[in-house]
Nucleic acid binder design. Structure first.
Length: 323
DNA sequence: CATCAGGGCCCTG
DNA sequence: CAGGGCCCTGAT
């Protein structure tokens, strides 16, 4: 594993659209723990790739919900150009959906008597992805057919073998490798790292990305159906992985279509206080109430329960999350 | 101890 | 379009 120290620093500010919720946007407690980012209230760290260069990011809240402002510190070696800084800025705005217009969504939320307290609490939260398409795709593949512990194990092994450890601002934050890094790694090499049949997916996906077969920027501009079709063409991407990517990377708010069995159990509990409600009913009810914002609405309620889980033990939830 | 389904997807028939 | 196989792990 490579390790790299970043000693220089440049700063700039971004004004997200209002209202804005910093912690809800930059920390997602439902995600499995990884070495790719760090968070404490009002502060967030991660790395970012622009072209082939790696930078460290520290993002801090310097505003208020109705007057949003964040400070971005970019840690780098040698020099950094204005155009690189600008690219970083635009990339942060996209990944964390900082220009989102949520007026319509917030209106819908107000009409939801039952869950309005939750929407109010997280008002201004965005659905976000710290990662680019390739990186999140790797994570999504590692989530397939695995418990949390196993996913964490696989992620760490891959990072230790192919990732880069970045040292900046007193933190050690990891970065996922470039796709071409796996060019000369055999499927057997990957299998030896105990990632199972995913070795085949990850190798083939890395090859396709290294050859430039996937245009992430174009994907961001497509409508949901076209984007989904493009994503499903990728080897190892089915309905669930496509949903994750569409929602988090493409910011498609209405992707509440595929519901996995373990998610079904949690939704049944959250929405109906019953052990098991049919997927069709769950989907129909949500779509009826939140139409174009179905997945975003569910995201608020989903993350809210995982925030609670940080401080109190929720027995029924513990049972459904397979650690 | 053995067996099995699972935070899906691919492939075959 | 249904169903078997896949790596591994924990539940039974």
């Amino acid at each position: 594993m490579k390790s790299q120290a970043l000693k220089n620093k440049k700063e700039f500010f971004i004004s997200p659209s209002s209202p804005f919720h910093f912690d809800g946007t930059f920390h997602k407690p439902s995600h499995y723990p990884d070495k790719l980012s760090d968070w404490e209230s009002e502060k967030y760290w991660q790395t970012i790739r622009i072209g082939k260069r790696l930078f460290g990011l520290k993002i801090e809240n310097k505003g208020e919900a109705q007057k949003p402002k964040i400070k971005v510190s970019v840690f780098h070696d040698n020099k950094i150009s204005d155009s690189e800084l600008e690219k970083i800025k635009q990339e942060i705005i996209w990944r964390f959906d900082l220009n989102a217009d949520l007026k319509e969504f917030n209106k819908l939320a107000k009409s939801d008597k039952r869950f309005y307290p939750i929407f109010k609490k997280w008002l201004g939260m965005r659905n976000s992805s710290a990662h680019n398409l390739y990186e999140l795709l790797i994570i999504a593949v590692l989530l397939q057919n695995a418990t949390v512990r196993r996913t964490v194990q696989m992620t760490n092994t891959l990072l230790d073998n192919f990732g880069t450890k970045m040292k900046f601002d007193g933190k050690d934050i990891f970065s996922i490798w470039l796709p071409e890094k796996l060019n000369n790694v055999s499927e057997q090499n990957l299998r030896d790292l105990k990632i199972g049949y995913r070795a085949k997916f990850i190798r083939r996906l890395s090859k396709d990305f290294a050859e430039g077969k996937i245009d992430e920027l174009k994907l961001r501009t497509l409508d949901q159906e076209s984007a989904k079709k493009e994503l499903m063409r990728l080897y190892g991407v089915g309905p669930e992985t496509a949903r994750i990517l569409l929602f988090e990377v493409c910011h498609q708010y209405n992707t509440f279509d595929h519901v996995a069995p373990w998610q079904q159990k949690i939704y049944s509990r959250l929405f109906y206080e019953k052990p098991l409600v049919s997927v069709n009913k769950i989907r129909d009810d949500i779509k009826k109430q939140y139409s174009e914002y179905s997945m975003l609405a569910v995201h608020y309620i989903w993350e809210d329960i995982f925030w609670k889980r940080k401080n109190e033990k929720i027995d029924w939830l513990e049972k459904e999350i397979r650690l």
